[in-house]
Design a protein around this nucleic acid. Structure first.
Lengths: 136, 136
DNA sequence: GTACATTATTGTATTATACAACTATATCTG
DNA sequence: CAGATATAGTTGTATAATACAATAATGTAC
């Protein structure tokens, strides 16, 4: 009973959150470009297939996002010497700079929104969010 | 320092969450239709302007969503007797049924995803999510 | 070496959204 | 009260992120 009420709340608030954090640029990176660049930076160079699997997106989606990042000079496409079909997408220095700028802007923004939360609340929220995402 | 790390995590995980909870139908209601119907049910009949303000959406967006709900028979459009331009969108019995089905399906799904969380974790997460949404 | 599998790209469609233009009605002001 | 302005709502158009289908190029296995 109590639990059901809580689930209702989480469910509605997640739906609302989805709209609230709708696409918004911070610096030169929109959300999807930011996530892809973050992923390449955090987990290392990879091809679109691997990146698509990690992020649970379709390869075609990642392919386009990767092309856009390359176009902006934030990643370079390195041909796989052992497989003529495959490439490795590697973050550039410019990409690292841009990612940092964007990350800072995003962290500032969320930091402002939750400025009244206690350190413990922030920590728990980060942990629960992460657990939720890992479960999907 | 610690705090910065936490903000980084929240910021990335929110972005990831946004993708994970991408549009998905539960029953006959997609996310936006569900939210609008929920809003009408929870806060009562209203016109598109008021609904748009409450939900921080453009009136044109709500106008289309409202038309879709009406088309499916989940809301009826009642002309405002004191203002020839205005309507009030009222949820129908069918709309209530459909909302309940959708809400249950969504709550079941999120309940399954967080089935291993303690009751306290669920409660805190619900509370923090709500606070975050109210701050935007 | 032919058939099948895999990596990536490109074409097309969908969904949610915003902004701008417009219609019809309401209110205000001189 | 008549013309000007404001307001509620709809419709046209654009954009972004996505998926699925078709295709091209290359690799692998029998």
């Amino acid at each position: 009973m109590m639990d059901n009420q809580v689930l209702d709340t989480i469910e509605v608030e997640l739906a609302i959150l989805w709209r609230r954090i709708a696409n918004r640029k911070h610096g030169n990176l929109d959300r999807s470009a930011y996530l892809l660049l973050h992923q390449i930076d955090a987990y290392g160079a990879a091809g679109v297939k691997a990146l698509a699997e990690e992020s649970h997106l379709d390869v075609s989606t990642v392919s386009r996002q990767a092309a856009a990042l390359e176009h902006k000079g934030y990643v370079t496409r390195i041909p796989d010497p052992t497989d003529g079909r495959a490439y490795s997408l590697q973050i550039t220095e410019q990409g690292k700079r841009e990612l940092l700028i964007s990350k800072q802007a995003r962290a500032d923004r969320i930091g402002y929104l939750i400025r009244d939360w206690t350190g413990e609340e922030k920590r728990i929220f980060a942990e629960l969010l992460t657990r939720l995402n890992r479960t999907f």
